[in-house]
């Protein structure tokens, strides 16, 4: 059990190291200053606009996915006894 824990820990650390090297070794192309609007700090309106205009198709597809998930989950969780 101890070896398993050690191995898992070692692999996780190794992966973290790889990720960390990638993150800190890259010069990210970001904006120089975060935009700040103190009167209306919320961007909910902008997100809403995006979802219902540009991303409306993925949004509708997502609704179908959720519906399918709902049906599937109910079917599987219901099990044998109720059939």
């Amino acid at each position: 059990m101890q070896t398993k824990k050690l191995a898992a820990f070692g692999i996780a650390v190794l992966f973290l190291a790889v990720l960390g090297l990638g993150i800190f070794g890259t010069s990210w192309n970001t904006v120089s200053e975060l935009p700040e609007n103190f009167e209306d700090p919320s961007n909910v309106e902008g997100i809403g606009m995006l979802i219902f205009t540009h991303y409306v198709v993925p949004f509708e597809v997502l609704s179908l996915v959720l519906l399918a998930t709902l049906i599937g989950a109910i079917y599987m969780a219901k099990g044998e006894e109720s059939k």
């Binding site: 959720l66 998930t69 709902l70 599937g72 989950a73 109910i74 079917y75 599987m76 969780a77 099990g79």
Partner: peptide, 12 residues
């Protein structure tokens, strides 16, 4: 969705 399916599988 994933959590719902996952829990359903584990219930089964």
């Amino acid at each position: 969705a994933e959590a719902a399916i996952g829990f359903a599988i584990f219930m089964a």
